[in-house]
Write a protein that binds this DNA or RNA. Sequence first.
DNA 1: CCCTGATTCGC
DNA 2: GCGAATCAGG
Length: 235
Amino acid sequence: MSWTDERIATLKKLWEGGSTASQIAEELGGVSRNAVIGKAHRLGLKSRPSPVKANDNKGEKKKPAPKPVVKKATAPKPEAIKPPEAGPVSAPAPEPEQHEEPSRPKAAESGIPSQPLPNPSTNLPKIVSVGPGGFLRQGPGDQQAPIPPAPPRRLVPAKPSADIASKTSLLELSDKVCRWPMGHPGEPDFHFCGQDVNPGFPYCVEHCGRAFQAQLPRGARRPPPPLPFGGPRVR
DNA sequence: CCCTGATTCGC
DNA sequence: GCGAATCAGG
């Protein structure tokens, strides 16, 4: 695969849109995560929260070691022979470690306190009783946070096994129905749009707009596609 | 372990 | 210019 203008545009869009390199690589197809990252850097667009970049030395510290990584089977790697140097006359005695904290009171910090502290404000019992089915009844004013917030970082098969009987399958394609693919090939619910085609085109009116917009002049492109589009493939 | 992005360097 | 290999933090 080569980096065509289209693919580069997609890369930029997704990269700046916050997609991970892996997701972009899958969306583009035919390229690895490394390829995406490498290309992104070559394009100048870098940055973005990197797990290994949080280092920000304010006052000069350490890290003057550039690290001359030389892997590959290029050099036979002579492996320097360590001269015996000075004999074992007087080995520098290891600094005796000073244990600043020889002992630590663990009673108050570990596990369940033997005696519940009578906290006036949060002393309400959390579990009033156990209802049928095993669910825990809660007292008023002790409701838990409604919904677990965090949305999944990676998109998952979202559609377990919906009824695809009504979806347009590959065998049902004809000159009269929109051939726009919905989802990704290989996924259980992969199907085609199936709407009436825009006469003269293989797609319906709506998807003609999607299918041919990429052909518009550079400046005239519209950026509508509501990401995450169909979502990355999940394998 | 998994994930992430950054970097290097042979091609 | 490309990207696998590698590094390194979360």
